[in-house]
Each structure stands twice: as structure tokens, then as C-alpha cells.
Amino acid sequence: MTWWCSTVEWPWTWEWRPYVGAWLLVLVMTVPYLRSMRRRAKTVGLTDRDKRAIVWYLLGIVAIWVASDWPVAALSASYLLTMHTAQFILYGMLAAPLLLIGMPEWMIRRFLERTRLYRAYRMAANVFVAAIVYNGVLILTHVPNLLDGLRASQLGSFVLDIAWLIAGLIVWTPVVSTISELRLRGAIARCTFLFLATGVIPMIPAALITFSPEPSYATYELAPRSWDFTALEDQQLAGAVMKVTGIFITFPVIAYIFIQASLAESRHVGTRDEGGSAPGPAAAA
């Protein structure tokens, strides 16, 4: 039995394969969370926000499970660079923000206190550090020899996947963290950071992958082909997927932030007008 998915040499089949490590990861991330929520419910009760957080968190866990288990992980580790890129997106661009949204402030503060990770997390959440860490991990884990080497072993593949998840958690912290002092203030700041950190810089490795005249990764070039496209076409598609991620994830989030900011501003103005002392026509009447 395989605990984590790594490169194999046999041809792809749709025969299901279990990856115990993926299930364990899901359990380790879910059980303590739900127990904590249950304790909270018994003591002070859950707010509506807590209940919504559970949904977000579980969606993040689903994203991790999909990324770590068959078939996505199997295709990603051995056969298709495109699926490898999709897996990266699942970890770093989908699961990470969902997990952050799904962890209420009281919970993450307690976690950071118990693990004494607050200072390190706060330092990592600095916008410069977060952008550098995320893009550093992105670039480093796409160095051909390094990626081929990591993918070859279960441990290496696990390290690669977890690195993506952690980098994703770090880069999304200034945007969606429930800890207010770690979150950027202002919609423009958050959108600019998100655009630059996750939308622009990743285009560099994506372009290198897309426009390479030959396959860059032995793992995928020498994989048994079960599809009608070549290793180079797979690589070009992977580069395109990496590039358009911004369109499908980053840009909607940016749009959402702006809409929320606009609505909040309207409410703010409305409240001020209603409670303000400036005499209006009604007051005058």
C-alpha cells in the first residue's frame, strides 16, 4: 500500500489506488478542528460566523483531499504536468484560502499560542515575505531536476505538496486571515498584493514552461502516454493553466473584495447620513 503518491512507471489505468497518507492528512486536519468547534459550541456557543467557517474549512479539506488522493495525485505525480499544475492550484490557490477563512480568530490564536508559532507566522505574513515565500516555493519546486527528484519518492512528493499548501497559507494570510493584525487594511492594498503575489510573478515560470522548445521534466516526458497529446503539448497546457489561474481565482477574489468594499462604503455613508447632524430637508420640515 502506498502512503503518498509518487512517480510510477506503469501505464495509467482508471483502477482506483489507495493513498493512506492523504486520508491521514485529511483526518489530522479535520478531527481536531471539529472537536474544537464542538467544545466551543458546548461552552460559549457557535456564532453564525463560526458555522459558516466550518463550511469554508470543510471545503478547504475537500480541496486538499482531492489534490492528495487518487486520481488527481496519481496523474500529477506520474503522468501529466497539467494535472501537476492543477494540483498546485488546488493546494495553494483553493485549499489555502478556504482553510484560512474557515479558521475563526479564536481558534487560530489558540493554535498559534499553543505551538508558539505566532511570531514566525506574523513574520511570514509580512507582505514582502509572503510574496517571496510563495513565489520562491513556486519557482523552486518547478526546477526540473528538483521536481523530478522530489516526485520520485513518496517523502519528496509529500514535501512538495505540503510546501505548496504552506506557501499558499502564507500568501493568502494578508488577504483573508481572520487575525486582523495580519490582514492588510484596505481593499486596494489587498487586491494589489494578491494581484502581484499570485497573479503576476507566477507568470514568469509559467512562461518558461509554456514556451520551452522541449519537455522540461523527465517525470512527464518519459511517462507512459495514455493520451493523444505529446509531453510538450502537455507542458504547454500546464503553463497556460498556471497563467490563467489568475483569471479564474485571483480576479474573482479581487472583484469580490472591491464589491464588498464598495458595499461597506455605501453602508458607512448611509449610516453617517442617517445619524448625522447635518439638517436635511426632512429635518428642516
Binding site: 460566523r49 477563512i101 475563526p104 481572520t178 484596505g186 477574489v253 464588498q260 468594499a261
Partner: peptide
């Protein structure tokens, strides 16, 4: 208490 994408700080 952490309206995540809340932009009240707009």
C-alpha cells in the same frame, strides 16, 4: 470576529 473578505476597512 473576522469577516474574512469583509472590506469594512475599505
Amino acid at each position: 470576529n473576522g469577516a474574512v473578505l469583509d472590506s469594512s476597512a475599505a
